[in-house]
Simulated assay, not measured.
Amino acid sequence: MNNKNTVEGAQVVARAGQLLKLVARDGGRGARLLDLARAAELPQSTTRRLLKALVEERLLEQSLPGRRYFIGPLAFELGLARHSRPIVTEEFRIMMAGIANQADGAVCLQALVGDDVLCLHRADPDTKPGCNSIRPGDRRPLGGGAGPLAILAKLSNLEIDQTLEKTSSELYFTLESDLRDTYSGITNTRNQGFAVCREMFDRSLTGVGIAFSPQQHPGATLLSISILVDEINEARIETLANLLKRKIKTTNASGFQCLANSDNNFHHNFELHTGPNTGLSN
């Protein structure tokens, strides 16, 4: 195989991987061809050809009514093969369930993966059904919600600029006002020690989130925990933020683990990208 074919083959794989991640960001809504082509900065013909191949391999599936693309069954099957046990420990899941009941809102644990944020676990209060805006396995761009915004604010200014430059062509950051709002949100998050942001796919929900490094992976893994609620005011924002800070500090002080991997290689497994100042804000 000559070098030209090798390079072209690598580009095809990279583009297919990019499309898979973009579809994953849309979660249960499904992604349209036009939006995917714009976000990936590819011609529609190229995008359609790649999507067709991914559908044939069952990595994606396409709905007949709306012609939207969803993550396919093979992606799920491969995930099961990689992880034979839960990513999040039982004790941390119990803690998240307790927060959900105290806050009367959904609680999400998310991790930084490349330029995206991946939902690892969600806990819902006993009093109401879970929200449909974000589920385990869903991806969000950095800044796309309270948890992703909290993580974004932990990165250096240079990393933030580089990240937003990459995502500015995507559907959710194409408007100049969105970028201004994102930078303003970063400043506010750093000043107050927590992020407050409307949920990306359900504007009726507001999230309060904090980024932190788990006790067993100091400086290696950047996570966020956020609470999504449908009724919010300044007093409740402060209450929810203090609840999260208190629970995370208690978790780190007690020494129990957040992530269920004893081999200490979560950073390698999930290709996590971290920046400086990854400790919990006071």
Results as ranks from 00 to 15, higher is better:
Asn2Leu: 06
Val7Ser: 10
Val7Ile: 01
Gly9Arg: 03
Val13Met: 01
Ala14Ile: 04
Ala14Lys: 13
Leu19Thr: 02
Leu20Trp: 06
Asp26Arg: 14
Asp26Ala: 12
Gly27His: 02
Arg32Ser: 09
Asp35Ala: 10
Leu36Cys: 07
Ala37Tyr: 12
Arg38Leu: 15
Arg38Lys: 11
Ala39Tyr: 09
Gln44Asn: 06
Thr47Met: 07
Arg48Glu: 11
Arg49Asn: 12
Leu51Gly: 07
Lys52Cys: 09
Leu54Val: 13
Glu56Asp: 15
Arg58Met: 15
Arg58Leu: 10
Leu59Gln: 02
Glu61Ala: 12
Glu61Cys: 10
Gln62Glu: 09
Gln62Trp: 01
Pro65Val: 06
Arg68Glu: 07
Tyr69Ser: 01
Ile71Ser: 01
Pro73Phe: 04
Ala75Arg: 08
Leu80His: 10
Ala81Glu: 10
Ala81Ile: 08
His83Ile: 07
Ser84Glu: 15
Ser84Met: 07
Val88Cys: 13
Val88Gln: 02
Ile94Arg: 13
Met95Glu: 14
Met96Ile: 14
Asn101Lys: 00
Ala106Gln: 10
Ala106Lys: 05
Ala106Gly: 02
Cys108Ala: 14
Leu109Pro: 12
Gln110Arg: 11
Leu118Lys: 04
Leu118Phe: 15
Leu120Tyr: 01
His121Val: 08
Arg122Trp: 02
Asp124Ser: 15
Asp124Glu: 09
Pro129Ala: 08
Pro129Asn: 15
Cys131Ile: 12
Ser133Asp: 14
Gly137Met: 04
Gly137Glu: 11
Arg139Cys: 05
Arg140Gln: 10
Pro141Phe: 06
Ala146Ile: 10
Gly147Phe: 03
Pro148Met: 04
Leu149Met: 15
Ala150Trp: 07
Ala150Gly: 04
Leu152Tyr: 08
Leu155Thr: 01
Ser156Cys: 08
Gln162Gly: 01
Gln162Cys: 03
Leu164Ser: 04
Leu164Thr: 07
Glu165Met: 05
Ser169Thr: 14
Ser169Arg: 14
Tyr172Gln: 05
Leu175Phe: 11
Tyr183Met: 03
Ser184Val: 00
Asn188Trp: 01
Arg190Asn: 00
Gln192Tyr: 00
Ala195His: 04
Val196Arg: 02
Cys197Ser: 09
Arg198Lys: 09
Phe201Trp: 05
Arg203Cys: 05
Ser204Phe: 04
Thr206Trp: 04
Gly209Arg: 05
Ala211Gly: 07
Phe212Thr: 04
Gln215Ile: 15
Gln216Leu: 09
His217Gln: 02
His217Met: 03
Leu222Phe: 05
Ile225Leu: 13
Ser226Trp: 02
Asp230Met: 04
Asp230Lys: 09
Glu231Gln: 12
Glu231His: 09
Ala235Thr: 13
Ala235Asn: 14
Thr239Glu: 00
Thr239Ala: 09
Leu240Ala: 00
Asn242Cys: 03
Leu243Glu: 05
Lys245Gln: 08
Arg246Ala: 12
Arg246Glu: 12
Lys247Trp: 01
Lys249Glu: 11
Asn252Phe: 06
Ser254Leu: 15
Gly255Pro: 10
Cys258His: 05
Leu259His: 09
Ala260Leu: 02
Asn264Trp: 00
His267Ile: 01
His267Gly: 07
His268Glu: 14
Asn269Trp: 10
Phe270Lys: 06
Gly275Val: 09
Pro276Ser: 10
Thr278Asn: 11
Gly279Asn: 06
Leu280Asn: 06
